[in-house]
Simulated scan of single mutants.
Amino acid sequence: MFVRTVYATGDPAQLGTALRALNTRGHDLLEERPGYRGAGVFVDRDLGKLLTVSWWESAEARHNSDEVMSVRRPELLQPFAATVAVENYEAVVFHPGQRTLAGGGLRAARLEFAPADADLATDTFHAGVLPRLEVLPGFAGAALFLDRERGRGMSGVLFADRGSLAASRAGQASVRREGTAKAHVTVVSLEEFEIVHADVRGN
């Protein structure tokens, strides 16, 4: 599958307004788009950060959807958003885990790599990293997104509750250290979010 991420920052006091718009008008707009396969909404309420991930059955469906969403996105995110960054990726690894309830946690890492190492990154995550993540208490799903041409990506691991997210930090740090070394990947940022909503439909 293919994904589009939207990363917005702004006034934490206005975050609730954006969430209500995304969960109503934004949800309806996405559901109307051909090829839509689900979405996730994640927040850092203290700092005022919002991450959304929409899933698409093809790159073409994702592209076609953005003809509408790019026009409507500003009104959905205002008055919260002061900055907005939109990225497109291929979901090269996806482990749905258990159905994640609101209030759980996401740990997301942004990655950089040589484009020639995209397959190495995929294989390492699937065969070496994912099996070790699955045994962490509270594990609720994981995914690896790559932009092969630009050598950029994002990994995300979902946990069933915020306690499990916090307790997994040391364990995942060990997995991350070994995995990035084997995959020739550099982690350029590491963030944690509260799960507001996460639902992806299987193939």
Rank of each mutant, 00 (worst) to 15 (best):
L165V: 01
L130V: 08
G138N: 00
A160P: 13
S164K: 05
V135T: 12
A121Q: 05
L111F: 00
R132K: 12
P131Q: 12
G163W: 05
D117F: 02
G153N: 14
V129N: 01
R152V: 10
L144Y: 05
G151K: 09
G141V: 00
A118M: 10
L165D: 09
L136Q: 03
S155D: 10
A118E: 03
L111S: 01
L158E: 10
L165S: 14
L111R: 02
S168E: 15
V135M: 09
L165I: 08
V157S: 03
T122H: 05
A118N: 14
R150S: 14
A167Q: 12
G128Q: 00
R162F: 06
D119M: 01
R148Q: 15
A127G: 00
E112D: 12
F159R: 02
F113A: 06
L146R: 10
S155Y: 07
T122E: 03
A127Y: 06
A166F: 13
G156M: 13
L146I: 07
A143K: 01
A166P: 11
V157D: 01
M154Y: 07
V135A: 12
V135D: 10
P137K: 03
S155C: 06
E112R: 05
A116T: 11
G141E: 01
D161S: 13
L165M: 13
R148K: 08
A143M: 08
S168G: 15
S155T: 10
L111V: 05
S164V: 07
F125D: 03
E149A: 14
A142Q: 04
V157H: 02
L144C: 11
L133E: 03
T124K: 00
A140H: 01
D119W: 11
A166R: 11
A160Y: 11
T124D: 04
G156W: 04
F145E: 11
D117E: 12
A160M: 07
F145T: 08
V157A: 09
E149V: 15
F125C: 11
S164L: 07
D161F: 00
E112V: 07
G151W: 06
D119C: 09
L133S: 04
E112T: 14
R110P: 01
G156E: 03
L130T: 00
A142K: 03
A127K: 05
R162V: 10
R162L: 15
A118T: 07
A166T: 08
L120Q: 04
D119E: 09
L130K: 08
L146E: 14
A160F: 06
L120K: 09
E149Q: 15
L120N: 01
P115F: 05
F139P: 01
E112N: 15
V135Q: 10
T122P: 06
A114S: 11
G163H: 04
D117Q: 02
L158I: 06
V157M: 09
T122Y: 04
R148G: 15
L165G: 06
A167L: 14
A143C: 07
H126F: 10
L130F: 05
A116L: 15
A114Y: 14
R162K: 14
P131G: 02
A143H: 04
D117W: 04
L158A: 04
P131S: 09
F159C: 01
T124L: 01
F159V: 09
S164G: 14
E149R: 15
S164R: 14
F159L: 13
A143E: 07
